[in-house]
């Protein structure tokens, strides 16, 4: 699976500056709602927060994959954000998070979801790729990294 198949060109945001998990998720929800006209930002934020309550999506190495299931979308919709400094995310290794790959996932279809997670994990497990993501100076540079990686 190509990352560019789930992340639109205007859904990469580089070097943003949020100081909390909540604020970062609010921003991502607002951005997502601009692309998903049937869903408002509040509803999307709820989906993310519901999932975070079950356990942090901070999976270690400064990476978080906040996600939520929402009805009425056909395909996975993702947003990639890099933060200038690490945010406390209650991550598994207690490290602050500066790469957020947020996903909104259609209801059901567990096999497809696992396949997407595996593909994303494969990319993010590459230290050099993560380093490049962290150093992307603007949104376009961040998107180009995604497109090139594919």
């Amino acid at each position: 699976m190509k990352l560019s198949s789930i992340i639109n060109k205007d859904c990469t945001k580089a070097a943003v500056l949020f100081n909390s998990k909540k604020r970062a998720l609010e921003y991502i929800s607002e951005l997502a709602s601009e692309h998903l006209p049937k869903h408002n930002a509040h509803e999307i934020l709820d989906a993310f927060l519901t999932r975070e309550k079950l356990g942090s999506t901070g999976i270690g190495k400064g990476i978080a994959i906040p996600h939520g299931r929402i009805a009425g979308i056909d395909t996975i919709f993702a947003i990639l954000v890099t933060n200038q400094s690490g945010i406390d995310f209650d991550a598994i290794d207690n490290r602050p998070v500066d790469i957020l790959l947020a996903m909104l996932v259609p209801e059901g279809n567990n096999a497809e979801h696992l396949k997407t997670l595996a593909a994303i994990a494969d990319k993010l497990n590459n230290k050099e790729f993560c380093k490049q993501l962290r150093h992307a100076k603007d949104d376009d540079a961040l998107y180009q990294l995604i497109a090139l990686q594919d």
């Binding site: 096999a111 696992l114 994303i120």
Partner: peptide, 10 residues
């Protein structure tokens, strides 16, 4: 976690 996800264990 990343490596475990890559197993794609369904």
């Amino acid at each position: 976690v990343l490596a475990l996800l890559m197993l794609e264990s369904s």
